[in-house]
Each structure stands twice: as structure tokens, then as C-alpha cells.
Amino acid sequence: MGADATLVGRSFPPTAPYLVTEERIAEFAAATGGEYAGGPAPVTFPIVVAFRAMQDLLADPDVGIALHRVVHGEQRFTYTRPVVAGDLLSATLTVDSVRRIGGAEVISTRSEVVDAEGAHVVTAKAVLVHSGDES
């Protein structure tokens, strides 16, 4: 199992809506060297939503990649507006490319994170590297 070229261009269903609360932001801020005092969430907070979309990709019956065989190769966030408490966020992941480099599959993904109204909040681009060697 693994990723192949047939995945390219495929979009996965939006993740279940995730309610951003002050408590979740505070936990994330505390885990990333900060302290939450109200206002927007830390810049990398949307990974919480994007990670769920990535897990759906890995768990897909056509893909079937175990999480521990995946290394995060690259991550990028591009914002339209900050994330704040009260946001109901959902991520839709699309596979942009799959390349084979050596024995590894390099999967480039893009998760568009939108709010309850469907308005764009942030794009989270991730490159996932799957070492196909099961030995």
C-alpha cells in the first residue's frame, strides 16, 4: 500500500467541523512556548485541523499508510484572516503531487481551511514523506 499517481488531484471530504475554543487555543499556546491572553490563535494552530485531514488521507483504503512510517517533510501556512475562539473550522485536503524519490513516496498536499460560512481562513500545505520500505 502507499500513494501513487492516481491520487494526484484527488480531494478528500471536508473534515468534521472543529470548534475552536479558548481552552484549546490556550493548550496549544502553552505547548508551543507561549501563553494565551485572548485574541488570535498561534500561527501554527490550524495544524490541529489540517492534521485530521492528513490522517484521513493516510487511512484511506487506497492509501493505507501507517502514521509512524510518515515523516513530515515541509509545512506552510498562508492566512486570509487569523483564527479566533468561536471559529468552526473544516479542512479539505487535495493531493497536489506524488513523487517517488529513492525508495520514498513524497506526497504534496494542500488543505484549505474554511469557517462555518465557507470563507477561507488559511491554506496549510504539507509535504509527507512515506518510506515504503516495510523491512
Partner: peptide, 24 residues
């Protein structure tokens, strides 16, 4: 995330970092 925190300190608070990316 820690790098993002450093940026927020420099920028004067969260919500001011509009793009962030890196390779691991």
C-alpha cells in the same frame, strides 16, 4: 510552532504572522 511563537513575539502578538513555512 516554537518558531511561530518567536515570530509572534517579534511581531507584537499572535494574528500578525500571515505566512509561515519551512522544510523539516
Amino acid at each position: 510552532g516554537l518558531s511561530g511563537r518567536a515570530l509572534e513575539v517579534w511581531a507584537g502578538g499572535p494574528g500578525r504572522v500571515v505566512e509561515l513555512g519551512a522544510k523539516f
